[in-house]
């Protein structure tokens, strides 16, 4: 990084600003330049998973609380908007809005007792809770049970949150969600909240001894994280129009969310996006190359990559760039 070291901070900031602007323009223009529906679907999923991974990153990366049960909040959002719509005819946007407080309340109910547990214990408790909630959902007929829910088709409209003739609106909705999540993380990084989070991550006892109410701040991180993941879940339900406990609540989804963030770079602003942008297309690529019938080549690579990153490059792929590690 010879030039990066020499350049004045102001010039560097300007360069970063220009790059960011170009990135945003590219993201906005993408569906009009590349009109292949397959690519559009792929990018939509990259954005969705990047958003989920970034939301997880707020809790785990910045605040150091490693949740292995984030699918719970994804499922909460997906089920909230869908069940409210199918049972009581609520508008899916209202459902998305209603899912968020439910997910936040759930995250408080999980976090309040579990934040007493440290490190591995917390991680294991969140796995157990995820399993409990998935089993309950499978056996709860009111929300479709194991058969799942198929959302009714509606005419294309922004109000109905369904777009069939042109999928562009889905693209822009998920892009907006991702940008919002990145903006919130960026704000958190730079404000007292972010410093508190990082202090708690590095040394909870020291953080407490200088007067940070650690449980309250862990709960704040959990709430922000759960809110975004829930919104992502509602989006997913409206995009796919079908959900069941196996697609929105499994442990494998919780793991995928962590994996993208960890491989990309945990505790960084761009890591989760980089992770999703590399790994989600990789999964598609291997499916095309090796066929989708149970070869699991993508998981083979994911697993190897996760171990390698954890062992040799805990700062993630973003950390390889060196310059922007942890501020």
């Amino acid at each position: 990084m010879a030039t990066g070291g020499v350049a004045a901070p102001a010039a560097r900031r300007r360069l970063a600003g220009v790059l960011l602007l170009l990135l945003c323009l590219a993201a906005l223009a993408f569906p009009w330049v590349d009109r292949l529906p397959y690519h559009r679907d792929l990018v939509i999923r990259v954005f969705l998973y990047a958003m989920l991974a970034q939301a997880w990153n707020i809790l785990a990366g910045y605040c150091g609380q490693i949740s292995l049960g984030h699918a719970v909040f994804f499922g909460t959002g997906a089920y909230a908007s869908s069940v409210l719509q199918m049972r009581w005819g609520w508008n899916p946007w209202v459902g998305l809005g209603a899912g968020i407080p439910v997910a936040v309340a759930l995250s408080m109910a999980i976090g309040y007792p579990c934040f007493r547990l440290r490190g591995h214990y917390f991680a294991i408790a969140t796995i157990a809770i995820g399993e409990i909630i998935q089993t309950l959902a499978i056996n709860w007929d009111f929300i479709g049970g194991a058969r799942g829910l198929t959302l009714p088709f509606q005419k294309d409209s922004l109000l109905a949150f369904q777009f069939h003739t042109s999928k562009y609106p889905y693209y822009y909705i998920v892009l907006a969600l991702l940008i919002l999540c990145l903006l919130v993380s960026w704000r958190i990084e730079r404000t007292r909240l972010g410093y508190y989070f990082r202090a708690i991550r590095e040394d909870p006892e020291a953080a407490q001894s200088v007067g940070i109410p650690i449980t309250r701040y862990k709960l704040i991180a959990m709430a922000v994280s759960a809110a975004f993941v829930s919104a992502g879940g509602s989006f997913y339900a409206q995009y796919v129009l079908y959900l069941d406990p196996d697609s929105v609540l499994p442990l494998s989804l919780s793991i995928l969310i962590c994996l993208l963030a960890v491989v990309g770079g945990v505790g960084t602003l761009w890591g989760p996006l980089v992770g999703a942008a590399l790994l989600i297309p990789l999964s598609e690529f291997t499916r095309i190359q090796f066929g989708g019938t149970g070869r699991a080549v993508d998981l083979l690579i994911y697993g190897a990559l996760l171990t390698l990153v954890a062992v040799f490059q805990p700062a993630g792929l973003v950390g390889l760039l060196g310059r922007r590690g942890r501020p």
């Binding site: 994996l259 945990v266 697993g303 990559l305 996760l306 954890a310």
Partner: peptide
Amino acid sequence: MLAQIFATFGLAIFLRA
């Protein structure tokens, strides 16, 4: 802690796949 958790988690995914 993160590396400690995800190193063996990655191994698990790798072995299973």
